[in-house]
């Protein structure tokens, strides 16, 4: 066991993947010599060589499209896009090729690649550096979409993603890279794709979230505890496939749900969760489902982002609302 930040845990996971499988390679802008804009691949070029840790030209479609060919050709590429706001030039390759080659070739060809995308705001970044477009990827059939919020998941979900024979979009919450720490096993282990995690057990209300918002949601749960409300915190963690048993099971148990994400509200992944709650556990509900999300606006620049991101106060208020009739 070692104490690691989320960033360090992902680095350790990449190192281990490269060391254990010669077909694994990293490619992306600045991932080699500088170790990536977030230093996630720091030291990996020295350890694994320039054939396997590849600095690419500034071309996201090129990165994803070449990774697709590499994957079909028998490699297991891990491609990095620097920020989610820059992922759109590569999205055509994702939606039209990566996500559908297995279907259009009836399993004859597959693209087992991992697309790592740092995402989310709250760190005063420049424009286009704070987006949360997980719903776009979750809406693209043929992709696995996961996002770790703990160092343990950072390494374990990455191991499962690299081992997957399906393409995985691996979303890394920028705000948590260095602000969460935890014990991480030194040996290889997998956190299975398609599993959610209950971070705090509770009886009264389910707080459903993922990625960077897990931090505020956990804080909100403590505030609620002080008010006598026992909140359950569910880290959805895997948007596709969705662990319905854990996520919806929690809502069925508590009878109340607050869904928290920093992406815009309309057609966000929270809408999907709310729909599934309606389909499967409507009669267990004791209060309307609440959503605490980013707004349907452009992500504001530094001086305005506190108006946008769901705060602990907003989460607490929504949870209290669901308890109104209790």
């Amino acid at each position: 066991m070692s104490e690691r930040t989320l960033a360090q845990a992902i680095t350790a996971g990449l190192d281990e993947a490269l060391a254990s499988d010669p077909s694994v390679m990293l490619l992306g802008e600045d991932v080699g010599v500088t170790g990536g804009v977030f230093r996630i691949s720091d030291g990996l070029l020295e350890r694994h060589g320039a054939d396997r840790v590849v600095d690419t030209p500034v071309a996201e479609s090129g990165i994803v499209g070449a990774a697709f060919g590499l994957a079909v050709g028998g490699m297991r590429p891990i491609a990095e896009i620097q920020f989610m706001g820059f992922s759109t030039p590569g999205y055509d390759q994702v939606v039209n090729h990566v996500a559908r080659i297995r279907h259009r070739s009836r399993h004859r060809f597959t693209a087992p690649l991992v697309l790592r995308i740092p995402y989310g705001g709250g760190f005063g970044a420049a424009e286009h550096h704070s987006e949360s477009w997980e719903a776009i990827y979750a809406h693209t059939p043929g992709l696995v979409v996961v996002t770790p919020s703990t160092p343990h998941d950072g390494k374990g979900l990455l191991a499962a993603s690299v081992a997957s024979n399906d393409p995985v979009v691996f979303l890394e919450p920028i705000r948590l890279y260095r602000s969460v720490k935890g014990q991480v096993p030194d040996e290889r282990y997998e956190v299975p794709l398609g599993t959610a995690a209950v971070r705090r057990e509770g009886r009264d209300v389910s707080l459903l979230t993922w990625g960077a918002m897990t931090k505020e949601v956990r804080q909100a749960a403590e505030v609620l505890a002080g008010q006598g409300i026992d909140a359950e915190v569910v880290d959805v963690r895997s948007l596709v496939p969705l662990d319905e048993e854990t996520v919806l099971g929690s809502v069925a148990k508590t009878g109340r749900a607050v869904i928290v994400h920093e992406a815009p509200r309309t057609a966000g992944f929270g809408a999907e969760l709310a729909a599934r709650i309606g389909e499967t556990c409507l009669y267990d509900l004791l209060a309307p489902v609440q959503r605490v999300t980013g707004w349907d606006t452009v992500f504001p620049l530094k001086r305005g982002e506190h108006h946008y991101l769901p705060s602990v106060d907003r989460i607490v208020a929504a949870a209290v609302d669901t308890m109104a009739d209790a």
């Binding site: 590499l70 994957a71 050709g73 090729h97």
Partner: peptide
């Protein structure tokens, strides 16, 4: 888009 796939396939063969 497929031209990039040929680049990736050739690259994989090389590696």
């Amino acid at each position: 888009a497929h031209m990039l796939h040929a680049v990736g396939l050739a690259w994989a063969a090389m590696l």
